[in-house]
Design a protein around this nucleic acid. Sequence first.
DNA 1: TATTGTTATACTCTATAACTATA
DNA 2: TATAGTTATAGAGTATAACAATA
Lengths: 148, 148
Amino acid sequence: MPTSDPADQPAVAGPAGLIDALVQTSFVTMASLNKIGAEHDLSLTQLRVLGILRDRRLRMTELADYLGLDKSTMTGLVDRAEKRGLLERVRNPTDGRAVDVRISPAGAALAERLYAQVVASLAPLTGALSRADQHRLRALLETMLDRH
Amino acid sequence: MPTSDPADQPAVAGPAGLIDALVQTSFVTMASLNKIGAEHDLSLTQLRVLGILRDRRLRMTELADYLGLDKSTMTGLVDRAEKRGLLERVRNPTDGRAVDVRISPAGAALAERLYAQVVASLAPLTGALSRADQHRLRALLETMLDRH
DNA sequence: TATTGTTATACTCTATAACTATA
DNA sequence: TATAGTTATAGAGTATAACAATA
């Protein structure tokens, strides 16, 4: 995968240089996820849904909010995943309007495999760093995410 | 934007913890780019095309390879951007089969604005780090990208 | 023959607007 | 009335296969 993107420009001093690197890294990372998804006929969004529901059960609207999508988009997304036996719709027992979505056993098994593949596919990238640098990078990223 | 994703799981020791952070950071970054694109009626891919062509002129196939897309996909992508006056098709002077794609003045102006917006929207994230940590993060990311 | 790009086709993803059912 | 979800609709993104033009 190429590394070019909107930030693939002569690195500037100041914040831009870091942001260029961040954007490029993100494109590389997303390309890996996308490829792994494609190998299983899953879009990036479907991949995310499986990841999100690995340890949670959410109603349609919550899932939409999580993904930043409209609830009407979720209908088709969940429809297709349900048809493939990866997700299940369950009527919410306390709110007759709501529909909970949970991962199926088959979906959970797939999610585990996908996660392992993601780790394996990105390991070469992180493997460019020493063990100590890997720790530093993780700490820096987590600091940013905490503030987010 | 939510931070959940296929790696949004109990952080594991070893490579997985870092990779979780990398994936989450990438989703956050992509969400920003996506939002900026949407504000200008541009998909993430269109945004990338503008970024790539800021300082280059590529033929259709090269652009497709850059983006990891099929060449047939490029036709529609470039069609729409050309219709909006952001890109221009130019017949390649030395190879009668090839079509070069270049950014238009309007497209270049938009690309500059988009880039500034990207930097501005991600600055709060990187701003969570001290100046010294920002330098360290940039160096670590660039080390990974160099190996890629 | 091989390569470049487009066209035809089919799905998925996505949002908006309108609708049904429940609260 | 307000909320949860679906449906209808439309457009963009994507790939595969077949094609025309050029090398």
